[in-house]
Design a protein around this nucleic acid. Sequence first.
RNA 1: GGGUAGGUACCGAAGCGGUCAAACGGGGUGGACUGUAAAUCCACUGGCUUAGCCUUCACAGGUUCGAAUCCUGUCCUGCCCA
Length: 390
Amino acid sequence: MPDHPDAAFLRQGCEKILSEDDFHAKLALGRPLRVKLGVDPTAPDIHLGHSISLTKLREFQDRGHEAILIIGDFTAMIGDPSGRSVTRPQLTHDQVLANAKSYQEQAFKILNRESARIVFNGEWFESMCFEEVIKLNSRVTLQQMLVREDFRDRMDKGQPIRAHEIQYPIMQGWDSVMVKADIELGGTDQLFNIMVGRDLQREEGQPQQVCMVMPILAGLDGKKKMSKSLGNYVALNESPGEMFGKIMSISDELMPTYYEMLLREPLSAEAHPMEAKKVLAARITARFHSQPEAATAREEFETRFSRKDLEQAELPTFQPQGTAWDLVSIVVEAFGQSFQITKSRSEARRLIEGGSVQWGGVKLSAPKECFPQAEAGVLKLDKTHAVRIG
RNA sequence: GGGUAGGUACCGAAGCGGUCAAACGGGGUGGACUGUAAAUCCACUGGCUUAGCCUUCACAGGUUCGAAUCCUGUCCUGCCCA
């Protein structure tokens, strides 16, 4: 059987497809396939890491298939144990719903809004009674669940695995049954969960879904996977400036990976690393904002960080209230008012003593000094934060 | 339920009556250098009205001039047994 014309395109960037034969068979059906992607709204932001699978989902949409985005409002309360060495904190339903709302909005930066189907899995889990839960559980064995790498790991290290955690793969699998998924997308860490879906579908007499896993995007630190809780992420709804800046902070070693996974093209060997990084940053920024905004972000970045010209940079204005403020108070207030960052006075003091706080390019290292209120100028707070005063 | 080993700062891990805001390592932050890269060096890494003071070593009591360190109880976790 010759490959389906879309096969090569759709498999691009995939780490693994299980199974290849099923994949071709599904495409050969000639009807729009139900392609499932589950996301758990455990945090309010979707980031570049999520964008990998979402982009793949979009590609399916563009080829006429049906995108089913499952918002795991129910599963999010359990927390996916994937890749975790410790139990996740559980969220309340309200937190989850709030997150889900902003998730959808951000997901539509990638997905085609018109043809996407959004489903909350609370729809079927919420009404399940205990008997049904037991029945569902009887379909899998503990051994099956425990072969999972992260469970194994925790067993070996003597770390606790709570009984509810092993429910997660079962629930995710059940989602596949409920939406009759033809294909499920996910990161490589989802492989196990997706395979459980296949098992459950077979049990239910459904055709089994194809498992397509995408590589995991490394975080800005280049070491761990991109995730909200590790703080090494770029959210899709960040400002162009922040987005550009964050990407500029990745290491050269990480760049080829980002090129391949986010731009789907190889990094040219002769490009200057910094220039290549600016191109990368600009293209990603343009993708989630716009071309002009990305260009502006680049210019801003260059004046501010390359030329270190804070005078010309676009900075929030900060007007200290009251009189006779010492430096520490000014710094704390500036962080709070202009950036919504809470710094303790001790932290501010450390920054000052460390030489981070500068007034017109001159370090102010005496925390107790009174601040020269009358003058206007730029107060640099730390590497990435500065305010204009006056 | 029984036995046993434990619960120390973001993480790992020392400390086992005073010299402990707590060694050391990792991580993080800031500075120098620079390309907001890497490498390297330095500093910081509980709070405050900072030559000092206050709150921390699972929780609650107790012993003591003095406790992370000793005692009692409670909660939690691993492992073994039932």
